[in-house]
C-alpha cells in the first residue's frame, strides 16, 4: 500500500519537474521561464521528498523529509526572487504588457522607490 502511494507521489513529482524543464525551454522570456521553474520545480521536489520519506518509513527518515521540505519551501522562492532582481538590474527587459518597475531603480545605488519618481514614467510597452 505505502509502496504504491510513494510510487505515485514520486511519479507526480518527477512529471512536475519534467514540466518545469519543458517550461524552461518553451516559455518566451526569462521571467516567465523562472515562474515555471520556481513553481513546478518546488512542488515536484516536495512530492519526491514525501515519496522518499514514505518509502524509508522510519522516524528519522520522516523527520529528514520534514526538514528537507521546509528547506525547499523557503529557499527556492528566495533564490528566484534574488535572481529576478539581479536579472532586472542587469538590463534583461521583461516581455510584459505593463511594467511598474520601469525607471524606479536608482541607477547607481540600486535603491528601489515605492512611488514613481519625479521624472515621467516610461510609456507602456504593449506588444
Amino acid at each position: 500500500m505505502s509502496e504504491i502511494v510513494s510510487g505515485l507521489l514520486a511519479l507526480a513529482g518527477a512529471l512536475l519537474m519534467l514540466i518545469a524543464a519543458i517550461g524552461l525551454l518553451r516559455m518566451p522570456d526569462f521571467y516567465t521561464r523562472m515562474q515555471a521553474a520556481a513553481k513546478a520545480g518546488t512542488l515536484g521536489i516536495l512530492l519526491i521528498v514525501a515519496a522518499t520519506g514514505i518509502t524509508l518509513g522510519s522516524v528519522s527518515a520522516l523527520l529528514h523529509a520534514l526538514l528537507a521540505s521546509l528547506f525547499f519551501l523557503l529557499t527556492t522562492p528566495v533564490a528566484a526572487h534574488l535572481l529576478g532582481r539581479a536579472a532586472y538590474l542587469s538590463g534583461i527587459r521583461p516581455w510584459v504588457l505593463h511594467d511598474d518597475l520601469a525607471g524606479r531603480y536608482h541607477p547607481s545605488t540600486h535603491e528601489l522607490s515605492g512611488e514613481p519618481s519625479a521624472a515621467p514614467p516610461e510609456p507602456d510597452v504593449s506588444q
Partner: peptide, 11 residues
Amino acid sequence: TPLLAAPMAIL
C-alpha cells in the same frame, strides 16, 4: 521498490 524506476527515468 520497482515503482521508483519510472520517476528516475523521467528525472
